[in-house]
Write a protein that binds this DNA or RNA. Structure first.
Length: 293
DNA sequence: ACCCAGGCGGGCG
DNA sequence: CGCCCGCATGGG
């Protein structure tokens, strides 16, 4: 397998902060053995294994990405980390009040990542009624138990792939429990079979938000919230606004005097306030900021 | 010990 | 439809 180093000496991108992006828990697959400052982060990315070396203040990175050519490798990396997004334009639209403004300042450069659709599906099924630390642990167990080793042409073992649905469906549900999935093991087993035989996630890329979500919700274990997560972080659909316990709590606290709101009403509120083209980004800043209040 | 976590499916009214 | 419940598991 050929691996390309996108830029040997790293590259700087305006309004990009890798540390904030990783820590905001979007790529749930990253391996936590890293050290920001001058560390290496590495994690499976679909059939790829990305190694990103953080240079200096984490605003400059280099990566090795599997691809047929260097150009594609660079493009993949750019897409994966949302590096084509125009942050000044996005900030202008979502900077509606003091709370969001402070979040933008504090987490300046945090991007919405666009992960492999199946990877996002599995990770966010795993996320339900769970906490981030443990989700990452379980996902790591999955990669270790069900992924395959990736060896570069130069013989260096780069890491392991994220198991495809086809690979995963061959294992018994009990193996998923053993890896820590708990009651979600049944969902994973069914989802793997379904996404291999009935629903091609890779053919949903050009669907509208409504259609995409409708299709995703036919997967066992994927409800309203998880479908929004997959739409946003597996397809880059900015119209998705996942409302988990943190986002709900934060929105209610910041905009409704702490009064409980219905999910549906919060969705409407978000679309009116931040707009269909930007609300996904607003959600990510609210989520990350709200968790760290 | 008790409570919570990037919720969902199923059963009931 | 909406509401309510159980659910595996580990960390605070």
């Amino acid at each position: 397998m050929k691996y390309y180093t996108t830029t040997p000496n790293g590259f700087k991108i305006k309004d990009f902060d890798l540390a904030h992006t990783i820590e905001s828990a979007q790529p749930l697959t990253f391996f936590a053995d890293y050290n920001f400052g001058e560390g290496i982060i590495e994690y499976p990315s679909g059939r790829n294994f990305i190694k990103a070396t953080i240079l200096g203040n984490s605003k400059s990175v280099q990566a090795r990405v599997d691809a047929t050519d260097l150009d594609t490798a660079k493009k993949d990396f750019m897409i994966r980390f949302g590096l084509n997004d125009n942050m000044q334009d996005i900030y202008k639209h979502i900077d509606t009040d003091k709370f969001v403004h402070a979040a933008i300042e504090k987490y300046h450069g945090m991007r919405v990542t666009v992960n492999d659709p199946w990877e996002a599906t599995l990770c966010f099924i795993m996320s339900q009624y769970n906490n981030i630390k443990r989700i990452r642990l379980i996902v790591k167990n999955f990669v270790k138990a069900f992924g395959n080793e990736i060896v570069a042409d130069d013989g260096i073992i780069l890491g392991r792939t994220f198991p495809t649905s086809e690979e995963l469906m061959k294992f018994p549900e009990s193996d998923f429990r053993a890896a820590g999935a708990g009651f979600r093991a049944k969902y994973i087993k069914e989802a793997a079979e379904y996404c291999t035989n009935n629903l091609d996630l890779y053919k949903l890329k050009n669907k509208s938000y409504d259609k995409l979500k409708e299709e995703l919700m036919t997967i066992t274990g994927v409800g309203d919230k998880v479908a929004d997560c997959i739409a946003l972080m597996g397809y880059g659909n900015m119209q998705a606004f996942p409302i988990d316990v943190w986002v709900k709590r934060t929105l209610e606290g910041m905009y409704f005097n702490g009064k409980p709101q219905k999910i549906k009403d919060l969705h409407k509120f978000a679309e009116e306030r931040w707009g269909a083209s930007y609300m996904g980004y607003a959600q990510q800043y609210i989520f990350h900021s709200g968790r760290n209040l």
